[in-house]
Simulated assay, not measured.
Amino acid sequence: MSGAFWLALLGVVTSLVLAGCGEEPDGPATAPRTRWAAGREGALTIYTNTSLMGPVLEAFNRRYPEIHIRLEDMNSTRMADRVVAEAGGPGADLVWSSAMDVQIKLINDGYAQTYRSPHRAALPDGSIWRDQGFGLTAEPVVFAYNRRLLPPELTPRSHAELIDLFEKHGEVFRGRTTIYDAERSGVALMQLSSDVQIYPDAWRLVEALGRTRPRLDTSGQRMMGQLADGRVLFAYNMNQSYGETWAARDPDIGLVTPTDYHLSVSRVAFIPRNAAHPNAARLFLDFLLSREGQRAIARIGVRPVRDDVEATERPVVAGVHVVRVGPALLANLDRMRRDHLLTRWNQAMAGSPRAPLDPNAP
């Protein structure tokens, strides 16, 4: 019999033994047949807006040096367009994005393939959908500010305090705030939709923020850069892990996890139906979901999704609202709902400057 047959048989036996023991497997735990096929493929193409993860990719490559990784970093809207446009031929092997609702829409529309990871049972409820969409992190959404420019008495600790500051001290913030552009950023639209569903005064906050004439942007790198150099002094709804990478090297950057409520979002990955190297993608996904991969994520300051892996040193703040990986996110992309959200948001932001689409532009 062929070597492939025996590899497949070994994989079945291994799975049965693990299931019988009821224990979480060590390492990626990918079936031997899949590991062998991944090595034969020798390549992995990832589309992402998750540029923080370089050290995680390096950790994977130390274990599997035979697999060459090509990372394409782009915003979530362009990523979705690429997935759809390439559906007729070989495409990316893994699509990994913080725009949770856009990812779920692509999965719902049939662009993902099913894969039952051996680590599935170790993941919290709401982190996997249909064995196709996998939430890999659990990251708070925070306020970011410049400590040098914003004194403690004007530093908000909650959304309610932020409204009060904008309404009473608007002159301090006018022309010196920044926010993701909900019309051009899938992440921003998801956050706007979630804020409106959770917070009764969400539109009052959006309107107060709009009166400060914030710079509307699609590049977190540019937003944090302008916050660090003092061109702006406050950024609304910034991913905590991304903000912490800046705060670690710039003492002027401060972060606040709002105490009344805050979103906890996840970077969602799926393997496209037309992946050119599907076995390498399965191996990489298993690595990301394993304790080893989740520890690698935690080491770069990002809170991992698994509850049994030590997270970052920053304590969990009360009031967390977990945005679950699943079909409820599709409501954000309903045409009528989307049009209503954007119409009201654009009215609030009238007169605010828009940053260039090119993330490398100033």
Rank of each mutant, 00 (worst) to 15 (best):
residue 176 R to M: 09
residue 176 R to V: 14
residue 176 R to D: 01
residue 176 R to S: 07
residue 176 R to Q: 08
residue 177 T to P: 00
residue 177 T to M: 03
residue 177 T to Q: 03
residue 178 T to M: 05
residue 178 T to H: 06
residue 178 T to Q: 00
residue 178 T to F: 01
residue 178 T to I: 10
residue 178 T to K: 00
residue 178 T to E: 00
residue 178 T to S: 03
residue 178 T to Y: 06
residue 179 I to P: 00
residue 179 I to H: 05
residue 179 I to F: 05
residue 179 I to R: 04
residue 179 I to V: 15
residue 179 I to E: 04
residue 180 Y to K: 11
residue 180 Y to A: 15
residue 180 Y to I: 11
residue 180 Y to G: 15
residue 181 D to F: 01
residue 181 D to G: 08
residue 182 A to T: 14
residue 182 A to D: 03
residue 183 E to F: 09
residue 183 E to C: 12
residue 183 E to H: 11
residue 183 E to N: 11
residue 183 E to D: 12
residue 183 E to L: 14
residue 184 R to Q: 13
residue 185 S to F: 07
residue 185 S to E: 10
residue 186 G to N: 15
residue 186 G to H: 11
residue 186 G to L: 06
residue 186 G to S: 13
residue 186 G to C: 10
residue 186 G to I: 13
residue 187 V to H: 00
residue 187 V to F: 08
residue 187 V to Q: 00
residue 187 V to K: 02
residue 187 V to T: 11
residue 188 A to Q: 10
residue 188 A to V: 13
residue 188 A to I: 13
residue 188 A to H: 08
residue 188 A to Y: 03
residue 188 A to P: 08
residue 189 L to M: 07
residue 189 L to G: 05
residue 190 M to V: 10
residue 190 M to C: 03
residue 190 M to A: 03
residue 190 M to P: 02
residue 190 M to Q: 01
residue 190 M to G: 02
residue 190 M to S: 06
residue 191 Q to E: 05
residue 191 Q to D: 06
residue 191 Q to V: 03
residue 191 Q to I: 07
residue 191 Q to P: 06
residue 192 L to N: 09
residue 192 L to C: 09
residue 192 L to S: 05
residue 192 L to F: 07
residue 193 S to C: 08
residue 193 S to N: 07
residue 193 S to H: 04
residue 193 S to K: 08
residue 193 S to W: 02
residue 193 S to F: 04
residue 194 S to C: 12
residue 194 S to R: 10
residue 194 S to G: 00
residue 194 S to P: 00
residue 194 S to K: 06
residue 195 D to L: 13
residue 195 D to C: 11
residue 195 D to Y: 10
residue 195 D to I: 13
residue 195 D to K: 12
residue 196 V to S: 07
residue 196 V to N: 02
residue 196 V to E: 01
residue 196 V to D: 01
residue 197 Q to W: 03
residue 197 Q to D: 01
residue 197 Q to H: 00
residue 197 Q to F: 01
residue 198 I to M: 06
residue 198 I to L: 08
residue 198 I to N: 02
residue 198 I to A: 06
residue 198 I to K: 05
residue 199 Y to C: 10
residue 199 Y to S: 09
residue 199 Y to Q: 03
residue 199 Y to I: 15
residue 200 P to G: 14
residue 200 P to L: 02
residue 200 P to H: 09
residue 200 P to S: 14
residue 200 P to Q: 09
residue 200 P to T: 15
residue 200 P to K: 11
residue 201 D to G: 11
residue 201 D to F: 09
residue 202 A to C: 07
residue 202 A to G: 07
residue 202 A to D: 05
residue 202 A to F: 03
residue 202 A to Y: 02
residue 202 A to P: 00
residue 203 W to G: 10
residue 203 W to I: 15
residue 203 W to M: 13
residue 204 R to H: 14
residue 204 R to N: 09
residue 204 R to Q: 15
residue 204 R to M: 10
residue 205 L to G: 12
residue 205 L to C: 08
residue 205 L to K: 11
residue 206 V to M: 09
residue 206 V to E: 06
residue 206 V to F: 02
residue 206 V to N: 05
residue 206 V to H: 03
residue 206 V to P: 04
residue 206 V to W: 06
residue 207 E to I: 12
residue 207 E to A: 14
residue 207 E to Q: 13
residue 207 E to D: 08
residue 207 E to G: 01
residue 207 E to P: 04
residue 207 E to Y: 00
residue 207 E to C: 09
residue 208 A to K: 12
residue 208 A to N: 10
residue 209 L to K: 13
residue 209 L to I: 15
